[in-house]
Design a protein around this nucleic acid. Structure first.
Length: 255
DNA sequence: ATGGTAGATACTCTA
């Protein structure tokens, strides 16, 4: 089973890249973030023609998550239990082939100490509570998406210079660590020990050209999924295309 | 310390 996570930064702008990518790589499951589209405008038909069924949970302009699958999806859930209709659309889950996929777009948090940063920290606690109360980590579980956190210093280009700033600050790292401690393994890190491997580069300052990136997109697996993990890679080629997303797809294959 | 770019929307916010 090949599982991909990709923050596309607008499904409508990136649809040609996505369709081409699906044809080239034939993943079984694709988790998308920042679709930035209401459900009525989600390109369900185009993706069905490419061989994928879709579950999506979007809103106008911001956020939005979706799961594409070439196999049937059951037990689909959207958002946290008890969320109101105006809550940001950042969480979607589905069971595919006896594997439960949790796709998240964790809040960016803007700047450390800002109101949005506090929202990020409380969202991370809600995520931990949600997984703890609703999921059994002895089963086949994947938690993936845009976490907006680089877990360790080797996951960013210049750790000393950006120490304490957004995506690397200690409070957000310790909260995502609490999620990991429920029983997840960072599948990328399990299979790839090299520092300086990134999934996101800012559009500004020629960041990609200078490889000023962060590893903030992740595929985490419960123990049995970690045991079944076979390979994992980042498709930097998509970041070199014309009008790219600022994130590259992260791909993992499981037995 | 600031600003740079991209996307959606509507003249600004988010990342």
């Amino acid at each position: 089973m090949i599982i991909t996570t990709w923050n596309v930064n607008s499904i409508s702008v990136r649809l040609p890249h996505l369709i081409e990518w699906l044809k080239q790589h034939k993943p079984n499951v694709v988790c998308l973030q920042e679709t930035k589209t209401v459900d009525e405008k989600f390109p369900e038909q185009e993706l069905a023609e490419a061989g994928y069924s879709c579950e999506f949970f979007g809103e106008r302009s911001y956020n939005g998550v979706a799961i594409l699958s070439d196999r049937p999806m059951i037990n689909v859930h959207k958002g946290f239990v008890g969320d109101g209709p105006t809550e940001a659309k950042r969480l979607i889950e589905a069971e595919i082939d006896s594997t439960y996929i949790i796709n998240v777009y964790i809040p960016n948090g803007s700047h450390v100490g800002s109101p949005k940063y506090e929202v990020k920290l409380s969202w991370l606690q809600k995520l931990r509570d949600h997984i703890n109360s609703r999921h059994d980590l002895s089963k086949r579980i994947i938690l993936c998406g845009d976490f907006n956190i680089a877990p360790d210093d080797e996951d960013c280009y210049n750790p000393e210079q950006i120490k304490g700033t957004i995506m690397v600050s200690e409070p957000e790292r310790s909260r995502i660590e609490e999620v990991r401690n429920l029983g997840f393994t960072d599948v990328f890190r399990l299979l790839n020990k090299e520092a300086g491997q990134f999934t996101w580069w800012d559009y500004r300052m020629g960041a990609f050209r200078r490889n000023m990136g962060y590893r903030i997109d992740h595929i985490w697996g419960s123990q049995c999924m970690a045991d079944a993990s076979k390979s994992v890679w980042i498709d930097k080629a998509t970041r070199k295309l014309e009008r790219p997303s600022d994130h590259a797809p992260l791909v993992a294959e499981f037995n």
